[in-house]
Amino acid sequence: MRRAFVYLAVAAAGVALGLGSALWLAGLWPAASKMAFGNVNVGGWRSDFTTGSEAADPYTRARVARHGLLALAKTEAVYFSRTDDDAGEPLREACSYRLSGGVMPAGWWSVTLYDAKSMLPANTDDALSVDAEQMGAGAWSAIIAPERPAGGGAWISSRGAGVFDLTLRLYMPKPALLAQPDAALVSPRIERLSCEGEQ
């Protein structure tokens, strides 16, 4: 009887460990797991070019199913995510940032802000992203902040976002980006300007 109980206990412990480790490694648990993952890292912007395809490993598949459901395969679009600024600090609503970049190796691009649950932040500012048409050709920059910047210009609102991340979408990517992302993509910079409570 005692031996049967021991077997039952270790089986339950094994299942718990297997379940928990799978959920953790796949970014499904705890809920606040970071989105930025993948085998491509260009200046802190991370992507997995197997997203949306059968070639993705089971961890990537599970993570994308949770955080990027209905994502396209790389020949149509690639997705880069960024969770921290250029100083390595997590992106958060209490701070303001300057996001800047240049020409992108794609037919169209956008940068969108998402909260820790991978949803658009619950605000009504109508300033959720910037895109190629809005920014024009060549160098561009936008302010990320919870309030509209006084000087005008492009703005992504972080109001109601808490700790957030950014997704860079590159539609109709150029072959060079898929072949050599490090060389083809000049990654957008994220400079922290100030934080609430700082002098």
Binding site: V10, G14, V15, A16, L17, G18, L19, A22, A26
Partner: peptide, 9 residues
């Protein structure tokens, strides 16, 4: 049990 639960999940 751990390996099976991990893989199935």
């Amino acid at each position: 049990c751990a390996v099976t639960a991990h893989g199935l999940t």
